[in-house]
Computed example of a mutant assay.
Amino acid sequence: MRNLLLAVTAMATVWTFPSVAPAQTTEFQTWLEGVRSEGLAKGLKPATLDSALNGLQPIERVLELDRRQPEFTRTFWGYLDSFVTEDRIRRGRDLLRRHAALLDQVAKTYGVQPRFLVAFWGMETNFGDYTGGFPVIGAVATLAHDERRSDFFRAELFHALKIVDEGHIAVADMKGSWAGAMGQPQFMPSTFTGYATDGNGDGRKDIWTTLPDVFASAANYLSKIGWDDTETWGREVRLPAGFDLETADLSVHKHISEWQALGVRRANGADLPVADIEGSIILPAGVKGPAFLVYGNFDAIMTWNRSVYYALAVGYLSDRLIGQGALVARRPADEKPLHRDDIIDLQQRLNAAGFDTGKPDGMIGPATRGAVKAYQKANGLPPDGYPTHELLQSLRGG
Rank of each mutant, 00 (worst) to 15 (best):
G354Y: 04
G289R: 04
D173F: 07
D271M: 07
L338M: 15
L262A: 14
D104L: 10
R2Y: 09
R88V: 12
L262S: 11
R91S: 12
A333L: 05
T357I: 04
R238M: 05
S51V: 13
V314K: 01
P58I: 02
L312M: 04
T247C: 00
T388A: 12
P22S: 11
A196L: 00
A333R: 12
F158L: 06
P22G: 10
Q184E: 09
T26G: 00
D384A: 10
M11T: 04
T73R: 02
T368I: 01
G43S: 09
P240W: 05
M302R: 15
R93E: 14
F187H: 02
F134E: 03
S394F: 05
A353W: 06
E390F: 06
A139S: 15
D334Q: 14
V294H: 06
I225G: 07
D361C: 12
V237G: 02
F76N: 02
R91Q: 14
G34I: 03
R331S: 05
F187A: 03
G263S: 11
R266I: 05
L96S: 02
L117Q: 08
A367H: 00
T247M: 04
G242D: 01
R266L: 13
D165T: 10
P360N: 11
T230R: 14
P185N: 08
N200E: 14
H99L: 11
T75M: 05
D165I: 11
S394P: 00
L143S: 03
Q24M: 04
A291H: 10
E124L: 03
P273V: 14
I225F: 14
G226L: 03
R115N: 12
G203F: 11
A267Y: 06
Q393G: 07
F158C: 09
L80I: 13
W15L: 03
H168F: 02
D87I: 06
V252G: 02
